[in-house]
């Protein structure tokens, strides 16, 4: 049995818009945008005890409310592994790195391994200089 949860959340000028889609399978296509450079967007998916969070856009200090939503969202999954797919994140600042650490702390509480997958460009360089390879499992 595969349970699919899909959430698109965006923080826009203090408001949080949440759209819940029904039981559509997997990710909707082509959600890496250009546009999203402004806010963090994410979608989560749970299958076989693995939660995959596809994150896109810019991940910076102003994104704490969408990040908080994300954490609350995946907390209920009770999965053994959480994969943060950050291939679509085009920019991260030090606060974004801090939030990744918070996700790791949360994971430790419920013995969930947190994996960072697919970092590109600026994000990849940031993970390198902050030596996140010593804190997370990094995947290409």
């Amino acid at each position: 049995m595969i349970k699919i949860v899909e959430v698109i959340a965006q923080t826009i000028h203090n408001q949080v818009k949440i759209k819940k889609h029904g039981l559509s399978r997997g990710f909707t296509v082509g959600y890496t945008l250009f546009q999203e450079c402004l806010y963090l967007n994410y979608k989560t998916k749970l299958s076989d005890n693995i939660t995959t969070v596809e994150m896109t856009g810019r991940f910076t200090f102003g994104d704490h409310s969408s990040f908080r939503k994300l954490i609350e969202e995946v907390r209920d999954h009770d999965s053994t592994t959480m994969v943060l797919d950050i291939a679509g994140v085009e920019f991260i600042d030090s606060a974004g790195l801090g939030m990744l650490l918070l996700a790791r702390d949360e994971g430790e509480k419920s013995s969930t391994t947190v994996v960072l997958r697919g970092a590109q460009g600026q994000v990849k360089r940031m993970l390198e200089v902050a030596r996140f390879d010593t804190l997370f499992k990094l995947e290409d």
Binding site: V29, G30, Y31, T32, L33, F34, Q35, E36, E90, G121
Partner: peptide, 19 residues
Amino acid sequence: LDHGKFLSEQELLSVCKDT
């Protein structure tokens, strides 16, 4: 663009949609 690629058709539609 800065990610080393052209803007794809799909990206363009997404930009319109989100904007």
